[in-house]
Nucleic acid binder design. Structure first.
Lengths: 209, 209
DNA sequence: CGGGTGATGTCAGCTACTGACGTCAGAGTA
DNA sequence: TACTCTGACGTCAGTAGCTGACATCACCCG
C-alpha cells in the first residue's frame, strides 16, 4: 500500500519503472556488501521496493540475476561467427566471435564493472558453476555456428571449446588488473600461446641445470 | 528401532554395512526411474534404509552423489601429468593425464555404466552444471601440474582447458554409442582434429559451388 | 463507462539443507 | 567385569530457495 501511496503522490504510474534493473542493482550491492550466500532473495526484493515473489518472476533463480546479459552476449558471438568472411578458417571464425564478445564487454560496462562482478562470482561456488554453464553455452553456440559454416564434428565442438578457453583465460587476466593491455590484446597473446603449444615441433623449455 | 531389531536378528552389527554405496545405488535407480528433479533426498535415503539427515552427512548435496569418484579421477589425472617423461611437450603431458582418466573410466565401470550415468546428467540442468564444475576442476588440476613442470601462464591454463575439451568431446562420442572405437582411440582422433584446426596453413574446405 | 490485460502483492506449501542433541554398539582400558 | 569414549546414525526444529493459486488495480481499448 505504501507503494501505491508513493506512486499516487509522485505520478499516476502504479509502480516505479524498471523493476528488473532495480533488482539487478540491489543484488549487486548486497552481494558485494554481505556476500552471495548471506543475501536472501527477500532482502534483494526489499531493497528494490518489491516482493520476493516478484524477484522470482523476473529471474529464474538467485544466481541468474548476475547473468542477465548472457543471452545477448551469446547472440552477438553466434552472429559474429556466422558473419565471418568465407575465407576465414574455423579458428579465425571462432576468434571473430569472441573478439566481438570482448569488444562488447570492454565498451558496454568497462573493466571496473567486470572486476566487481568477477569478484562476486569467484567468491561463490554456486556462482562459479553458473558461470561455467554460461561459458559452455557460449562454446556450444560457437560450435553450432561453425557447423553451419560446414565444419564437421568433432572439430566444431572442439573449436568451440578452444575459443571459449582462450576467451576465459584472457578475461581472467584482464580483470585481474586495473589497467594494462585490453581484453582484445590479451586474446591475441593467448592465441600465440595456443599456436606455440599445439605446434608439431616441441619447444625447448629453458630448464635450470 | 526396526533397524535395530533387524540388525540384532541378522548379526550383532548395529547398522547394515556400506551406507554410502547403498545411497549411491538407490540414487542412481531413482534418478533413472523418476528423474533427478522428481526424486527427493528423503526417498533416496528411505530406499537405502537410512534417513534424509544421514544422506546429507555422506554427500554435500543432492547432486554430489553422482560425482562420488571425481576426486580420485582428479588425483589420477594430476599424477599422470606430473609423471610424464621430462621429454614430453606440455600437450603430450596433458594428454597423458586424460589418457589415464580414459583408461580408468573404460576399465573401472565400463561404457554401459557411463552411458546410464550420462543420460541422467544430460537430462538435468543442475547436474550438467555440476559436471561442468568437475571438468573445470580437472582442467585446473592439469594446469597446476603443468606449471610444476615449468610451463608458464597463460599457456598452462590454456593447455588444461584444451586437454579437457579433447576429453569431453571424445567422452561424449564414446557414450553416444553402445559399441565401436574405445575412448582412448576417440581421443586420438580428436587430437588429430585439434592439430588440423590450429595449423598455420588454412585447410581447404570442400564448399559447394 | 465497462471489460480485458499485465504486472504485482499475498498466502500457503514443498523441498534442499543445517544445527543441536539424543542414542547406542564397539573399542579401549583398568 | 565395569567404565568411558567415540563414531555413526536418528530425531527434531528451523531457514531459505522456489512455486502455484488467487486477488488487486492502473492502464488500455472499445
Amino acid at each position: 500500500m505504501s507503494v501505491t501511496v508513493i506512486a499516487t503522490i509522485c505520478r499516476m504510474t502504479r509502480w516505479e519503472p524498471d523493476p528488473r534493473g532495480r533488482l539487478e542493482k540491489a543484488a549487486m550491492e548486497l552481494y558485494r556488501e554481505r556476500g552471495f550466500e548471506q543475501t536472501t532473495a527477500a532482502q534483494i526484493a526489499e531493497r528494490a521496493g518489491l516482493t520476493e515473489r516478484t524477484f522470482f518472476r523476473h529471474f529464474a533463480d538467485k544466481r541468474e540475476i548476475l547473468f542477465a546479459g548472457a543471452t545477448q552476449l551469446q547472440d552477438l558471438v553466434v552472429s559474429a561467427v556466422a558473419s565471418a568472411p568465407d575465407s576465414a578458417t574455423p579458428l579465425e571464425a571462432a576468434i571473430a566471435g569472441i573478439e566481438a564478445a570482448s569488444a562488447m564487454l570492454e565498451e558496454l560496462r568497462g573493466r571496473a564493472f567486470a572486476r566487481q562482478r568477477q569478484a562476486i562470482v569467484a567468491a561463490s561456488p554456486e556462482l562459479r558453476e553458473r558461470e561455467l554453464d554460461k561459458l559452455a553455452a557460449l562454446a556450444a553456440g560457437v560450435a553450432g555456428a561453425l557447423r553451419k559454416r560446414g565444419v564437421g564434428d568433432p572439430g566444431a565442438a572442439l573449436m568451440g571449446d578452444i575459443a571459449i578457453a582462450i576467451f576465459r583465460v584472457s578475461f581472467e587476466r584482464w580483470v585481474a588488473r586495473r589497467s594494462g593491455p585490453g581484453l582484445t590484446e590479451l586474446m591475441g597473446e593467448s592465441m600465440a600461446e595456443l599456436r606455440a603449444l599445439t605446434a608439431e615441433e616441441p619447444l625447448v623449455v629453458d630448464a635450470p641445470a
